[in-house]
């Protein structure tokens, strides 16, 4: 923990970390995830079915024979429990089935097409938000009640309260239409590049920067008042060393519990960003799928989301152990 400045000692630290890796704990957590995922699938499956409508309902009432044919083609004519059992069986084998509305593609194909875009936007915006957010948070904390603090917190308040469906079109209008610096939306015939990814990433990162900087500031202020920081200062350590080596890791703890689920959320797509910037991510599948009663597609996205939540929560818990020596597994 303390020796991460020199390259040689950092490789030592890595191997020490590896030896300290709580393999048993991680495995236990992953095993517990199985019933959790099953519970999520079960609840989502039956809640979807409880909603009025079905994948084949349209504004026109289908003749009974057509409705029967469509039901049979989607396998919806079987008893609900049987459908559930078959679905869970298929999922266990990695088969998420065909999408009920996007009839030419399977759920896996759809997620495969949309996930890279969502992952890119989500990961990049979380990375940027973490870097800028924590920097601003620390800055505001050490200059507490100064002009810098008020400015950062004012901006943060702004970032939290202005929703992305407002910032997105504004940024798109200013930087895309007026200044023609970036693409206003869409990919470049399926390709992601700096030109078409910059605005969506920034739009998505803004509220995250705001949240993270506020979290970091509050937590940093609390840590800076604690006894061990006073001790560190009394020992004559430089302010930089006090802040970066002693205060920052401890102050990052509340952040870790926030970014676990938040990252999972960002990675599975933001429906607003995807709509405003006309991007083909998985967030849209979730909303469109729910509205169209595309049972298999919605379940597929829920499973993906739940899986990511499980993984990121586990990563967050493991990170606790790294950041806080008091944590024992």
């Amino acid at each position: 923990m303390q020796n991460n400045s020199a390259p040689s000692s950092s490789s030592n630290a890595l191997s020490r970390l590896a030896s300290r890796f709580p393999t048993g704990y991680a495995l236990r957590r992953l095993l517990i995830a199985i019933p959790t995922m099953l519970a999520v699938i079960t609840m989502a499956f039956f809640m979807m079915r409880a909603a009025p409508g079905n994948p084949y309902s349209t504004d026109r009432k289908l003749p009974p024979e057509v409705e029967a044919n469509m039901k049979a083609s989607l396998g919806l004519d079987k008893p609900l429990v049987q459908q559930y059992a078959e679905y869970v069986g298929k999922v266990a084998r990695g088969d998420f089935g065909p999408s009920m509305r996007n009839k030419d593609k399977t759920v896996i194909e759809l997620i495969g097409e949309g996930l890279p875009v969502s992952l890119t936007i989500g990961a990049a915006s979380m990375g940027i938000a973490l870097f800028i957010g924590s920097l601003l948070g620390v800055l505001a904390a050490i200059r507490q009640n100064s002009f810098a603090d008020y400015s950062v917190m004012g901006l943060a308040m702004f970032g939290i309260s202005i929703p992305t469906f407002v910032t997105g079109p504004i940024l798109s209008l200013v930087f895309g239409v007026y200044l023609t610096l970036f693409a206003v939306g869409g990919l470049d015939m399926g390709r992601m590049n700096f030109n078409n990814m910059f605005l969506p990433i920034v739009t998505l990162a803004l509220p995250q920067i705001a949240i993270i900087s506020r979290l970091m500031r509050a937590s940093m202020i609390e840590v800076l008042r604690s006894n061990y920081i006073r001790t560190a200062r009394a020992k004559g350590l430089s302010e930089r060393s006090v802040l970066l080596r002693h205060a920052a890791p401890a102050a990052a703890l509340p952040l870790v519990s926030y970014i676990g689920p938040a990252t999972a959320g960002l990675l599975t797509g933001s429906v607003v960003i995807e709509r405003v910037f006309s991007l083909p991510g998985v967030g849209k599948y979730f909303v469109d799928g729910a509205l169209n009663r595309d049972y298999t597609l919605v379940l597929g996205v829920i499973i993906l989301y739940a899986g990511l939540i499980v993984i990121f929560n586990l990563l967050a818990d493991l990170l606790y152990g790294v950041l806080d020596p008091r944590v024992k597994y």
């Binding site: 206003v184 939306g185 405003v276």
Partner: peptide, 14 residues
Amino acid sequence: SDHGAVVRMAQTGK
């Protein structure tokens, strides 16, 4: 599907 985005794309020649 976003009508506002469609207008912006028409404006920028996309």
